[in-house]
Design a protein around this nucleic acid. Structure first.
Lengths: 362, 362
DNA sequence: TTGTACGCGTTATCAA
DNA sequence: TTGATAACGCGTACAA
């Protein structure tokens, strides 16, 4: 085996230059400005580098000097392993990664801080060697987001929180999109409905909650969607009874449980409006297991437009999750120079599936 | 609004120290060694920092000095947006992220290099400020992997390539796992089978290929699985005709197309052994659309044990994708100090679903 | 085309 | 408990 001789000491730009009896500038130029030295010399430098196991300028030292890491940081509101259970989040990350690839930037996923250690979130954010941050759907007053803002780096927020000044937000009009869908569903005549929602509060809890509580959640996306349903209900000629179920975790299983709880709470419910597709798919599974026919016995609607939802022909709002990631990345990268702020709202559409219908006559 | 006064010049450890008329050491200690200075002084430092908008020691400068980035790099064999279509890859990344979170490390996703630019892969790898790399399922002689090895940092390879010295590999025994499954399927009496495989060659191509070509692929995982099927076929008392279809992209749609091509090529096929669940699910969709009943008309098997596959009750090998990521991360982090190499193989199991049966009598 | 000098922001070491 | 000094490895005017 021809193994490169393991150097006793670190090879650096300087040591390589010394070895070759040229200046450090020359070695640096060999890597960064090939036109600044003769091809032969460059060749000689690169060969010697390979020989000694030098793989080019140290990225950290270069970053320190150039004041850029060519890396953007991603802030999630929960450990990545949870986020990756959420297809919309996966799509978002994919889009963001796309934008990074195209611009030659790396994507740094900031680790989840150990819970209940004060200041831990700020620590991990402060340790990130990045040129800017993208925050994906974090709640208001999120400690990660607060720490990121303290760093005064370019920042793009996706979905929530809205209304942060000095930052750009990429998202959709959650209220308008859900209002349109809810009006369609309620327009079919449902008088008793259930809302299945994701986490609404600071602590994880499962089960029934009040509409008022839901409408004061720190998670504005959930809040807006629920508000839209409430608004649509208020627009109906006759009163609509609303039951709200909150789920601690965002899984199909939780959706199934929530569906059961909703119908336990009000057996007269004829439609479940879910704030996400994952919950809606869980509700559909639960219904199927209990001989409840969709949409004849129970209407179900979702939100997101995930691949699984489309496969199940769920009636839902389709939002461009991947495009959100892409735009967030592009904007952040553009922001590197020109500081700016604002908002970019992407279009949504409704997939008219086969999971809603008028309620049976009682 | 009480906005922090935007400093005209960058605030640094040194400038903050000067402002406070203390030494840089003291400010540094205020952040890193709270016990090394009086609480009052520390308080004074931290307050002044907040006042001036200083969010703690610069991570890049710290990394330069400490020679660690507390970050691990992830190398994928394709742009992240493709990897994220692959549920097994998503699970792997989730597990890896878990390990990072637990150890307080960030996860850096190395961008895809612009194609066909020589040396571009080495560039992006060399620019990564990381303490080590995890390579996920890259082919032999992958330029990213080669560049990573040049950097002489700790390296953990998942799945493939196998047999790299000086590195640790985490994976499963693909051959043994597939051999077990293939023997079960073939034991049912199938005499003409189709193999649906992922990309096997350097260039993307779709369609029929030869067993010989497949068995010399640079992708050892695919190779091992196909070899196992061939071995299982050789063990049968009567000869088994094998048709191999390669897919350029790893999607259900590609699986559906491949299934069609397999049966076009040999209409006598009674079983499709797929090297991944995604392809198998595509094949199942195609069959359903053409009135081909599974398993009576056609047996289908997969590999991976993804959530979707289990939902569809596909007969398949279940491998611990998330655990692979977790172990890869843990090992890499442990490797930080003690250089080592070796191999860690995780257990697989078979999910006996409802998608295989004996062939109909001809 | 090459070399010099300085700065990037931090931490380790040792002395006070 | 605090401070001075020397690395850490590199990029880039500017001068030669």
């Amino acid at each position: 085996m021809s193994r490169t001789p393991r150097p006793r000491r670190r090879v650096t730009l300087a040591s390589l230059a010394a070895e070759l009896k040229v200046s450090r500038t020359t070695v640096s130029n060999a890597y960064n400005r090939p036109d600044q030295l003769s091809p032969e010399l460059r060749e000689r430098v690169l060969n010697a580098a390979k020989e000694l196991g030098y793989s080019g300028p140290d990225p950290v030292a270069r970053s320190l000097r150039t004041r850029r890491a060519d890396t953007i940081g991603l802030l999630l509101d929960q450990p990545l392993s949870y986020s990756f259970r959420d297809p919309a989040a996966v799509d978002f990350v994919a889009g963001l990664a796309n934008a990074c690839d195209a611009a030659g930037r790396a994507l740094l996923i900031v680790p989840a801080a150990p819970e209940h250690e004060p200041g831990a979130a700020a620590d991990v954010v402060n340790k990130a060697s990045v040129d800017g941050f993208v925050a994906y759907s974090v709640p208001e007053n999120d400690p990660y987001l607060d720490a990121a803002m303290e760093r005064h780096l370019p920042l793009v927020v996706c979905d929530q929180p809205a209304g942060l000044d000095g930052t750009v937000r990429v998202g959709i009009d959650d209220h308008a999109a859900m209002l349109e869908l809810a009006r369609i569903v309620l327009g079919l005549g449902h008088r008793r409905i259930g809302i299945l929602a994701m986490r609404l509060g600071d602590t994880k809890r499962d089960g029934s909650t009040t509409l008022e509580a839901a409408l004061s959640s720190r998670y504005s996306v959930q809040r807006d969607r629920i508000q839209a349903i409430a608004d649509a209900a208020a627009l109906q000629p006759r009163p609509v009874a609303v039951t709200v179920i909150e789920t601690a975790s965002h899984t199909r299983e939780a959706g199934a449980r929530a569906a059961r709880e909703a119908l336990d709470e009000d057996p007269g419910i004829t439609a479940l409006l879910c704030t996400t597709d994952v919950l809606a798919l869980g509700a559909m599974t639960w219904a199927a297991e209990h001989g409840i026919v969709i949409p004849e016995d129970l209407s179900v609607s979702g939100f997101d437009g995930t691949v699984d939802a489309m496969r199940a022909d769920l009636t839902t709002v389709v939002q461009p999750s991947e495009e959100k990631g892409q735009r967030a990345g592009e904007i952040l990268i553009a922001l590197a120079a020109s500081h700016g702020s604002g908002e970019e709202l992407l279009a949504t559409s409704i997939h008219h599936g086969s999971t809603i219908a008028a309620p049976r006559r009682q």
